[in-house]
């Protein structure tokens, strides 16, 4: 959530300076993911996967196969994706409990 809000805030500032729209959009995605996570919804994972896939597409479009250029773009979003994968069992259990 905090990560998402930071990205959204900074991203909006960047847009106002004429820069990339990616950060604000990713920030919105992260905030919504956070909201869904708090509800223990499995949708959180699917939404994050969408954010991650969008990030991958954007990162490739901006910098292609340049490994060092991809460090800030893909490294931590991918770490978060792995953490989300670890969350899947508890998310699905929370979903089943509700059912």
């Amino acid at each position: 959530m905090i990560l998402g809000l930071t990205l959204f805030g900074g991203g909006a500032w960047l847009i106002s300076l004429g820069g990339s729209w990616y950060y604000a959009l990713a920030g919105v995605g992260l905030v919504l993911t956070g909201v869904l996570l708090n509800h223990g919804s499995m949708k959180a994972f699917w939404l994050y996967l969408l954010v991650w896939a969008g990030t991958l597409a954007w990162a490739w479009w901006e910098s292609g196969a340049d490994g060092w250029a991809q460090v800030p773009r893909m490294l931590s979003p991918t770490v978060i994706l792995l953490l989300m994968l670890l969350c899947i069992p508890s998310l699905s259990r929370a979903g089943q409990d509700r059912n």
């Binding site: 990560l3 900074g10 979003p77």
Partner: peptide, 9 residues
Amino acid sequence: WGFTPIDQL
């Protein structure tokens, strides 16, 4: 550049 999207931003 940066290490994460935050410092890159």
